[in-house]
Amino acid sequence: MILACPQCHGLSRVPDDRLSDAPSCGRCKSPLFTGEPIELTAANFEAHAAKADLPLVVDFWAGWCGPCQSFAPVFSAAAAELEPGFRFGKLDTENQQALAARFAIRSIPTVMVIKGGKILGQQAGAMPKQAFAQWLKQFSP
């Protein structure tokens, strides 16, 4: 399986059966799984969304958005619990307007699951932890 590093965003190959063995990046030696969402930008988005094999769960959010702020702990808890089955990333729609426009984000928070550059699912609005976990189950590898 090809994984993008959350630190240097370089690609590393890891055998499927070794994902839970705390693999490290082949380039920068950082852990490939941190249990925390990564910050997605125009510079690193393609590595995680199109080149890596793990489904990428993206939280499109903004700092001024109340529902985004209330959903943030749910998203972070999911990252801690569900890695390495998924990669979790947050995309600030104010700072990354071109990416938000590319995905036609009209309401926030919007959560999207992307694999191989293709959108597998999309959900608008904040969700409670249980509902979010249930929604993600359909995309489990």
Rank of each mutant, 00 (worst) to 15 (best):
I105A: 04
K129E: 14
P31E: 08
T110G: 02
I108R: 03
I38G: 10
K51D: 02
T34V: 11
K29P: 00
C25H: 00
A131N: 11
H9M: 01
F75C: 05
L19K: 07
P6T: 12
V113L: 09
Q7I: 12
F45Q: 06
Q7E: 12
G89E: 08
P128V: 10
L136I: 10
H48T: 05
R13A: 14
G10E: 14
P67M: 09
R27A: 12
Q122A: 11
P23K: 06
S70I: 15
A49K: 01
A4L: 00
G10W: 00
P6N: 10
V74H: 05
F86R: 02
R27K: 11
G125Y: 06
V74S: 03
C65Y: 03
L11V: 00
I119Y: 01
T41N: 08
H48W: 08
E36H: 13
L56H: 04
D21G: 03
A131H: 11
S20M: 10
V111C: 15
F75W: 08
S107A: 15
A104E: 14
Q97H: 11
A131E: 14
C5H: 05
S30A: 15
F33P: 02
S70C: 03
D16T: 13
L136N: 06
L99K: 11
K137W: 10
A77K: 14
S30P: 00
R106A: 14
